[in-house]
């Protein structure tokens, strides 16, 4: 490593080196929040500070806009349930094929082998995948937070039992247990699937929250709350958890992106969403053989998954920087 470091003339020179091309090409990556906050007379609350740091993260903001657009398009284009959307074609009907079904202005994502409009199909898959991903995120966050908070706060046998249960779930490969449960829940539709996936993906959050609570419960403000006779439940919900909110929010965001990857993988293997429901993973599974002849059938769902997961990951990264700006300060 010495040869690497020697390239800096002073050896002590630790200024960040932002090459012009680098920031332009991928300013998305970590961007903005590096700059120190201006010192003004106006004072900000903790929440405002976090929001300001978050909005400086260009990658996160771009991702938020893209993801927002995607959600709006997915839900309004073909409508939800009985409410019709603005897209004229239906995903169940087979239309006359134009040529071999390659994308045209009429069918922007092309048509499948039977002539179905692929845009409508992909939008439907996106809807289902988004619904599942967000539900899984919510369920796993609730379970993980509760388990972690109880284990960290009560210690003793509660902690031992809960953490051993967590270990049990950690040791079974996530994909395996999710596949088994997904198969069992397959008949109860996507809500059942979302619920069981949420029930197996909470383990990492539980560990994180426990660690956070373990250190928070020794703080003076918790001691003060105890001293005035506050009940355990109130201490956890009003004093401990609000201080751990950064960890929880960041982890919840990232769990959404892993949920969408888990769900699509399961559906691809045939253990996830069952027909007549569909998801982006099912679409790839159904059309992967068509890659050499009709590549668009393969590209669109994959790009959708990638876009959603990438956006959610960037938002999570922006949130992490916003809640915990220590990491982004340059070394001094």
């Amino acid at each position: 490593m010495s040869d690497i470091r020697n390239s800096n003339p002073g050896g002590e020179d630790y200024e960040p080196q932002i090459s012009a091309s680098g920031t332009d090409a991928v300013g998305l990556a970590a961007g903005g929040s590096a700059a120190p906050l201006p010192t003004e007379d106006k004072s900000y609350s903790q929440g405002q500070l976090v929001a300001r740091r978050f909005f400086r993260h260009r990658g996160a903001i771009t991702s938020m806009i893209v993801l927002g657009l995607l959600v709006v398009v997915a839900f309004t284009s073909i409508g939800v349930g009985p409410i019709p959307g603005w897209w004229p074609k239906d995903y169940t009907l087979q239309y006359d094929k134009i040529g071999d079904g390659a994308p045209t202005w009429e069918y922007p994502f092309g048509q499948d082998t039977g002539g179905k409009d692929y845009f409508a199909l992909v939008m439907r898959g996106t809807q289902f995948s988004l619904i599942i991903a967000f539900s899984v995120g919510i369920v796993s966050t609730i379970v993980g937070t509760v388990v972690g908070a109880l284990a960290g706060f009560y210690r003793g046998w509660v902690e031992s039992v809960l953490m051993r249960v967590t270990d049990v779930f950690i040791i079974i490969p996530l994909l395996a247990v999710a596949a088994v449960l997904g198969r069992m829940a397959g008949d109860s539709g996507i809500w059942g699937l979302a619920l069981v996936l949420g029930l197996v993906t909470w383990t990492s959050l539980a560990r994180l929250v426990r660690g956070e609570v373990l250190s928070l419960r020794e703080r003076d403000f918790v001691l003060a709350a105890r001293a005035v006779g506050t009940g355990a439940w109130r201490i956890i919900t009003r004093h401990v958890l609000p201080s751990a909110v950064g960890v929880i929010i960041v982890s919840a965001t990232l769990s959404i992106s892993s949920a969408i990857l888990l769900e699509t993988s399961l559906s691809y293997l045939g253990f996830g969403v069952q027909p007549p429901d569909t998801s982006l993973g099912t679409l790839i599974h159904d059309y992967q053989a068509a890659f050499s002849t009709r590549p668009w059938l393969f590209w669109w769902p994959g790009i959708m998954i990638l876009t959603i997961a990438l956006c959610v990951n960037f938002i999570g990264d922006g949130l992490r920087d916003a809640f915990d700006p220590r990491q982004n300060r340059t070394k001094d």
Binding site: P16, G22, L306
Partner: peptide, 27 residues
């Protein structure tokens, strides 16, 4: 090399790769 062009490229690729659906990338 924090905040160098190299850092940004690697960071972006890292995000890209762990957002990648494995079965899709395999094909």
């Amino acid at each position: 090399r924090q905040y160098s062009g190299f850092d940004y490229v690697v960071t972006f690729s890292a995000f890209l790769f762990f957002s990648l659906p494995v079965f899709w990338a395999a094909t």
